[in-house]
Each structure stands twice: as C-alpha cells, then as structure tokens.
Simulated assay, not measured.
Amino acid sequence: MQLFSKIPNPREIRRKLGLNQQDFWSKIGVTQSGGSRYESGRNMPKPVRELLRLVHVEHIDLARVKHEDFEIIEYLKQTHPDLYKSLKKAVSAQAKQSDATVQL
C-alpha cells in the first residue's frame, strides 16, 4: 500500500478485525466520536490515515518503533542501497512464506 494512500473504508477494516470503535480508534489516538465521523465519510487527515494503515493494515506495534530505527533504515538506504534492497526482499519473502503457512 502506498504511503498516505486513501483508506477506502475504515469501518470495513474495523469490522474485519472484530473491534468496536473505541478499541479500534484509540490505538491510533482518535476518539470514538472522531472515528465514527471518519467511518461516516468525513475526510480523514493524512497522518490519521497513515497511522490507521500502519497499525490496523500493516499490524505494526507503534510502541515498539523507536526514532533510532528510522535513522538506521535511512542510513542503510543511503550508504548500502544494495544491502537494503536485499534485506527488504528477504523480509518480503519471509512474510509471504509465513502467510502461506498460516493459510494451510
């Protein structure tokens, strides 16, 4: 999914995860009433969309991400682009293998 891409239907994502509005929206710092407005079609700001994508679509635990992690990623991209691409490809292959195992 592209960074800041439109989240088509946050209500559908929430329901697939089996969460109520309070639990779903509080994980990204949005009140239940604010989340309800987004689910009803109100325009969602880019930062909220990105947090929704990271937490509920990509399943990233934001409590575990540190600023240093982003610095390391940027350093690796700039100084060792081939290694970065290789690691990215390996992680993607591992995720696909995990998904295939879960589906069995």
Results as ranks from 00 to 15, higher is better:
residue 80 H to Q: 15
residue 79 T to M: 11
residue 16 K to N: 15
residue 19 L to Y: 03
residue 48 V to K: 10
residue 35 G to C: 04
residue 51 L to P: 00
residue 35 G to L: 06
residue 93 A to G: 11
residue 51 L to A: 10
residue 14 R to P: 03
residue 60 I to S: 00
residue 20 N to I: 07
residue 51 L to C: 05
residue 50 E to T: 05
residue 71 E to G: 05
residue 19 L to D: 00
residue 10 P to C: 10
residue 24 F to C: 07
residue 32 Q to K: 15
residue 25 W to S: 05
residue 90 A to V: 09
residue 86 S to Q: 12
residue 22 Q to H: 11
residue 2 Q to Y: 07
residue 54 L to I: 01
residue 40 S to N: 15
residue 15 R to L: 15
residue 47 P to G: 00
residue 56 H to P: 00
residue 97 Q to N: 08
residue 62 L to C: 04
residue 69 D to K: 03
residue 20 N to S: 06
residue 98 S to Y: 09
residue 83 L to P: 00
residue 64 R to D: 07
residue 78 Q to P: 02
residue 44 M to H: 02
residue 91 V to H: 07
residue 88 K to S: 13
residue 55 V to D: 01
residue 52 L to Q: 07
residue 99 D to E: 14
residue 16 K to W: 02
residue 96 K to S: 10
residue 101 T to N: 08
residue 69 D to F: 03
residue 61 D to T: 04
residue 63 A to M: 08
residue 103 Q to I: 06
residue 16 K to E: 13
residue 46 K to W: 04
residue 52 L to D: 02
residue 1 M to T: 08
residue 98 S to M: 11
residue 6 K to F: 08
residue 43 N to E: 14
residue 52 L to C: 14
residue 21 Q to G: 08
residue 3 L to Q: 08
residue 80 H to R: 15
residue 103 Q to C: 05
residue 49 R to K: 15
residue 64 R to L: 12
residue 57 V to Y: 01
residue 79 T to H: 13
residue 27 K to V: 00
